[in-house]
Nucleic acid binder design. Structure first.
Length: 470
RNA sequence: GACCCUAUCGUCUAGAGGCCUAGGACACGACCCUUUCACGGUUGUAACCGGGGUUCGAAUCCCCGUAGGGUCGCCA
């Protein structure tokens, strides 16, 4: 049988880290087995579902490159189908109407808690013949009273839950709309889902869903419950642990390659391997390799991976991704060196794409002030004269390339009888405004002859004016 | 509280009874490389939750504790 997996988020917010990882695992398993990956939007809760959330989730999936083969299917478009199934359950005696008020239910729960019991619906409306006026009933699934539900979770192994632990859950609200546990079952049946890969916060729902599925005459699919992702403090991952939205990572300058690589290693491993290309993930992935224990999100390691990908991704790919950040940071690269050259010069010193743009500004725009600390440390009384000599050497260069620039700087040092340490740092500040950059010859070459010489002259007069003021 | 699940360095993890004096990675420290910032290289600190079994032998299997997480909605 062909593998069919699905990712089924509810559109009540953006695509978050945890969702992205279960989506990744589902996608990976489908790709690995040559199966089908389905995207389904679980929007039955109309109060909380929004189109913006749908768009945000689609955007996140797209950014990560987790393309679906079927869908997106919207549950709100399938209400007729759910209605039919609910009626079928009603007709076959597997479901019944419940007229209990919310207050009544609340009282029941409190009483049970007081008795230190697990709060659960006691089935009091089951078999009820009358239909009280003026109350729109909910519909409950009649869970089997005896025995136990057992399933073989692909990552947890055998899980057994006694039917006594399960109560008669609501499958249709009083307004007639279906609820999650019903729609999930119907959809997984209709869409022929073979492997349900999801967060283990659903592990307690699984026995109920299996019961509904059996009542409908179907065999349940295989289940794989992946452990939760926790924050650094061991608590469930949430906003207070930092960014949890996938798109926030794009905004912060992360590459999708890094995020995917980080996510795949969170709760899954292949020996000691840390770096996985998309192709390797697909070929090496297995459900058996998924851990059973929850794992904590570690921003440092993600950052390291991001740096790794910035160092190693094809320059064209980085250039493509950088476009968005150039726009976001309002930097035009029209007047200046080829972006690919700048990327190659800077890729070893940027951990994020945001940083990459920030440290590359001086290649394209003049700056209007120098780094204060650097100036304090490097601009001395004799600096202006030294820079003048460097300037004069550079002016004479036939071709504005790294090698002749390098030679000119060294020849200036010789003429001055000083070491490079005396000339290099001030020259760097003069041309870039700050104390760090790629090697001087590459930096100057990329800045360009005119702009570089101009900046040196500007620095000379700047030093002159400030030294005078002293 | 009841039920379900989990437990190896600070974190992610390797480990399928002897290969474990427990390996790798991130972070952190030291050293080397170096015209800056980085990159890179070498290296160091650091873990099998506790207690009982089973076994010639246990990080690995079983039981009991303990700790953590999840679930108990007319949310998904």
């Amino acid at each position: 049988m062909n593998v069919r997996t699905r990712f089924a988020p509810s559109p009540t917010g953006y695509l978050h880290i945890g969702g992205a990882r279960t989506a990744l695992f589902s996608w990976l398993y489908a790709r690995k087995t040559g199966g089908v990956f389905i995207l389904r939007i679980e929007d039955t809760d109309r109060e909380r579902s929004t189109q913006e959330s749908v768009d945000a989730i689609l955007q996140g999936m797209d950014w990560l490159g987790l393309e679906h083969d079927e869908g997106p299917f919207y549950q709100t478009h399938r209400f007729d189908r759910y209605k039919d199934v609910i009626q079928q359950l009603l007709d076959s005696g597997h479901a019944y109407r419940c007229y209990c008020s919310r207050e009544e239910l609340e009282q029941m729960r409190e009483a049970q808690m007081a008795r230190k019991e697990k709060p659960r619906y006691d089935g009091r409306c089951f078999g009820r013949e009358d239909a009280p006026e003026g109350i729109e009933p909910v519909i409950r699934f009649r869970n089997p009273q005896d025995g136990a539900v057992e399933f073989d979770d692909l990552v947890r192994g055998k899980i057994t839950v006694s039917n006594k632990e399960l109560d008669d859950l609501i499958i249709a609200r009083s307004d007639g709309t279906p609820t999650y546990n019903l729609t999930v079952v119907v959809d997984d049946i209709d869409m022929n889902v073979t492997h349900v890969i999801r967060g283990d916060d659903h592990i307690n729902n699984t026995p109920r869903q299996i019961n509904i599925m059996r009542a409908l005459g179907f065999d349940p699919p295989k289940f794989a419950h992946v452990p939760m992702i926790l924050g650094g403090d061991g608590q469930r991952l949430s906003k207070r642990h930092g960014a949890v939205s996938v798109m926030q990572y794009r905004d912060d300058g992360y590459t999708p390659q890094a995020l995917l690589n980080y996510l795949v290693r969170l709760g899954w491993s292949n020996g000691d391997q840390e770096i996985f290309s998309r192709e390797e993930m697909v070929s090496l992935f297995s459900l058996e390799g998924i851990n059973r224990s929850p794992s904590a999100f570690n921003a440092d390691k993600l950052l390291w991976l991001n740096q790794h990908y910035i160092k190693t991704l094809p320059v064209e790919e980085l250039e493509r991704q950088l476009q968005w950040h150039l726009q976001a940071q309002n930097l035009s690269v029209a007047n200046g060196p080829a972006l690919t050259d700048v990327i190659n010069a800077q890729r070893d010193r940027a951990k994020t794409l945001v940083e990459m743009v920030a440290i590359s500004r001086y290649f394209y725009e003049d700056f209007d002030s120098y780094d204060e600390q650097a100036v304090k440390k490097q601009f001395k009384a004799d600096t202006a004269a030294n820079l003048q000599v460097v300037h004069d050497e550079l002016v004479g260069i036939a071709e504005w390339k790294g090698e002749p620039i390098h030679a000119a700087i060294h020849s200036a040092c010789e003429k001055l009888g000083v070491k490079l340490g005396k000339v290099g740092p001030p020259l760097r500040i003069a041309t870039t405004g700050g104390a760090s950059s790629p090697s001087l010859e590459i930096t100057l070459e990329l800045i360009g002859r005119g702009r570089a010489l101009e900046r040196i002259c500007h620095a000379i007069s700047f030093i002159g004016s400030t030294m005078m003021a002293d």
